[in-house]
Design a protein around this nucleic acid. Structure first.
Lengths: 138, 138
DNA sequence: TATAAATATGCCTTGACACGTATATACGTG
DNA sequence: CACGTATATACGTGTCAAGGCATATTTATA
């Protein structure tokens, strides 16, 4: 019952893998809880709980069919996410070529993008300066 | 250091509001940690931590500029999200008109979508059947 | 109406992550 | 080379949500 205190933002809803799986499953057609349960190998309570979240946040809606509940998608919230992506889509389409140039340079010289930046007060670092990359894990 | 054990999926990264704010801020241009700190009113360690996550998961990259680190966006992961949205985009564009019809009906008759479903074994519920909506909280 | 099938809820545990505070590290400058 | 600035990291803490298990609820059927 304490379900959903935060989690307002569409993004937090689709952050959950099982929830995304459910949503993807519902793309084809509406499904009952049991069907979802079987297809996704989740326990029934889990499916119900996730569906509840999805329902209460407007990602899906349900219809009663005898003892079953049939769940299906509702578009609104997805568009919300889509809208947010807009800004980045604009960004990356503007810089596609710049990116390609960047990547092309990447493999020829190791010195990173560092070489690219040359303005900014002329205060450049002296010496080899290997940018020791302590974070670039993964 | 225990940073990122789960959180593989792009979605979990952008689930965090501050992180989304940072990303949105970087759309305009690259920024230093300090600039982000000021503009978003976050503590410096917080900014650094979120940036670390974003960097390690490939949402941004950084360049050294004297003592500063300049962060900027990297498109890949966004496209990942965009790709996932594809399926739903297909869905909702296919059903736009169907949805509009649905919504139009909604306000004229209360009996919900229930009326729409008429196939399925003919085992319909008898009587008023108000679909008591116990979950549709919000 | 007792029983089974389908789904929803409640309670509990656990783990992860966001945040704060303190501190370390790196770099430039006097 | 001591100091200030910019950023990263370590550690401790609280919170919240996901999952498991048991049980309630609803509806169909015998």
């Amino acid at each position: 019952m304490a379900y959903i205190k935060d989690m307002e933002s569409a993004f937090e809803i689709i952050a959950e893998p099982n929830r995304r799986a459910i949503l993807s499953l519902l793309v084809s057609s509406e499904q009952s809880v049991g069907e979802i349960e079987r297809r996704l190998h989740m326990t029934q309570p889990m499916v119900s709980k996730h569906l509840r979240v999805l329902r209460e946040t407007g990602f899906v809606e349900s219809t009663v069919d005898a003892q079953r509940r049939l769940y299906r998608l509702k578009p609104e919230r997805f568009q919300e996410v889509d809208t947010w992506l807009e800004q980045f889509r604009r960004f990356w389409s503007e810089h596609v070529d710049a990116l390609e140039r960047h990547l092309g340079r990447m493999e020829s010289s190791k010195p990173t993008t560092q070489a690219t930046r040359t303005k900014k007060k002329g205060k450049r670092l002296r010496g080899p300066n290997r940018e020791r990359d302590r974070g670039e894990t993964k």
